[in-house]
Design a protein around this nucleic acid. Structure first.
Lengths: 200, 200, 200, 200
DNA sequence: TATGAATGAGACTTCATTCAT
DNA sequence: CATGAATGAAGTCTCATTCAT
């Protein structure tokens, strides 16, 4: 009957985090539908029933993961001016296959994209994610070079942003197929194409 | 009792085709795990049990679909010289969301890619598919302009092919998210970038 | 793909019957919520999954049972002129505790009545049942004595029917509590009161 | 460490009361199986765990509720001479659907009666309740008119009491189905039948 | 005394797969 | 060859009950 204290809220948030971490790992490993709640519970080191104290149902977990990725992305964009897009793409390539926080895990992106095809809520969340990335790219392309941008005219920036996004996501997809792709070649290819896209 | 005649083999092949068509449609609509055998059977206009006369199990159907896409692709490559890659990309954009045969359906590509992450057999089949596309692109880029190619030196062709493939697949992924994307902008963007990639 | 034949329909109907019989028994024994699908399946001698080929879910079974009772009642009313209501009440008393078809089982009536308090669909079906009984009673009370009725004026028949129905159901309820109630006393009591109710 | 003082006992009794009130409300609303401990706890404004300090388990709560109803009934009988049974029946009709204390709530009676069919302890408690009502009725019917009774001979009183009880409970059952029943008609019907039952 | 997080059993339900017909 | 009834395993979810705090 007492109001929830900060301490219990903290604990709850921590538990939610544990569950999401476990879920993300399981989803990457087995996919949204291949991963069972029992699976996630075991990975999180708790009983299956307990998960339902923190999430209404399985699809709420999926949504929470998409949302969390969106938060991470936003923070990433806020912190990061991305001066060297090509270099960063190469750097991150193959890294996301482990479940680290930097950039979205490639397999997870696939899973989410596939699910968005069917679940409108996931689609909406993904659209949101998408729009955020696009806006950041356009901003970066149009901003003046003085402030770290590339001074592209507003008329062409959207289409260049689209290209970059396709390239970026195509690369993510490729990560899942050729995680061992020769970095040298990748670097060379990107260093060739990215400047062509972002220079006026 | 009788040896399998050509006629019965034909019939068998036709049945397999019916099943694969139905399965493909169901997989696109509900995903590999969301589509049930009962679903597929109903779509194919046959009983669930009959499917097991033609396929060992559900994942055999998935494999067969990847294989069939590979066949279709090969035939496509054999017939098609692809003189205008950018134009074709725009033309096909958004089309694959309906279950036509030209190019792989975007949602299906997602589904298969995600599944390849877990099932090594699917991964192998997809690698095969992948390599085929890559080889065709490299061939097309290196072949002389006289025979419809672009005469790129062998040293840079692979990396350009990689770029094209990423772009192409990134575009496929985008199809699932923005099927209504402005064709004008897309055409403009591709007409700008593709020549830069394929011209020496 | 062939149309369902009479034979398969027959079988289906027989299976539905088996399931309903088993369900009725289980519901009487453990209540709607105490009886599990596994319970019913075991009683019916089949697997739990099979039940879902014949009924969409558990509450569909409940509804089907209410409906079936209604059918039985209708048939009973059609066949039966009920000349000796009091006698029949005594005769049936205590019989319904076994799951026979004659009159509704007392425990089942309780269960259904309780469920109707919460589930509007059950309530609707029960209302239907209720109205059928009431109409039959009114008809019987108003019909001329020549045709087996009691020639009550239409003005008082409804309230007498209400009394009879209350008495009848109160007696059902009592059956569950005192199945061994002295029949002599019961007969004596009913023979005293019922004529007072139905005679003008 | 300290012996239970009167004060702590009082508090305990008050807590039990709170729990029973909440439980009764929940049971009426959702049934014994549909009402969860969490439900009851929330309604009672306490934690789920605390309930187990006052009741061994859920069915102990059910038993306690039946017992409490019995207490209330006893008190009611002691205070109340019930001069006008029919009038009171009409008065109370439909009232019990709200969770007041006067007479047993109709839905609760159903729930308890149904449960008594399965749980022998509930059956025993209900029998006790039943016998108390019956005895009071018999007493009232046999007592001289001078002391508010009806002076029925002891030979017929039990069967008349039985009739009254059936009528009374049948009416309760009806309350759950037709809470809006026309009071005029009900009054008219009862005024007709009740005197016939209780007059010699 | 009181909380509410945690568990474990068990409920309903779905579905790939088999097999008698 | 073809059907679809049947099974059994597995999945999602709920809830009575316990227990550390």
């Amino acid at each position: 009957m007492s109001e929830p204290t900060d301490k219990t809220q903290d604990r709850a948030e921590k538990q939610r985090g544990r569950i999401l971490d476990a879920a993300q790992q399981c989803f990457i490993e087995h996919g949204f539908h291949g991963a069972s709640i029992a699976n996630i519970a075991e990975t999180a080191g708790m009983s299956a029933g307990l998960i339902y104290r923190y999430f209404e149902n399985k699809s709420a977990i999926i949504l929470a993961i998409v949302d969390r990725q969106l938060q991470l992305l936003r923070e990433d964009i806020r912190l990061n001016r991305r001066v060297d897009l090509a270099g960063e793409m190469v750097q991150n390539y193959g890294r996301s296959c482990t479940a680290d926080a930097r950039g979205m895990n490639a397999a997870l992106l696939l899973e989410i994209s596939a699910e968005a095809t069917r679940d409108p809520q996931v689609a909406a969340a993904l659209d949101h994610y998408d729009a955020t990335v696009r806006a950041a790219l356009v901003d970066w392309l149009t901003r003046g070079t003085a402030s770290g941008g590339h001074g592209l005219p507003a008329a062409v920036a959207p289409e260049r942003a689209l290209l970059l996004q396709c390239l970026f996501e195509g690369l993510k997809l490729r990560e899942t197929r050729e995680p061992q792709l020769d970095r040298q070649m990748l670097a060379s290819a990107l260093r060739y194409i990215v400047p062509l896209v972002i220079e006026p």
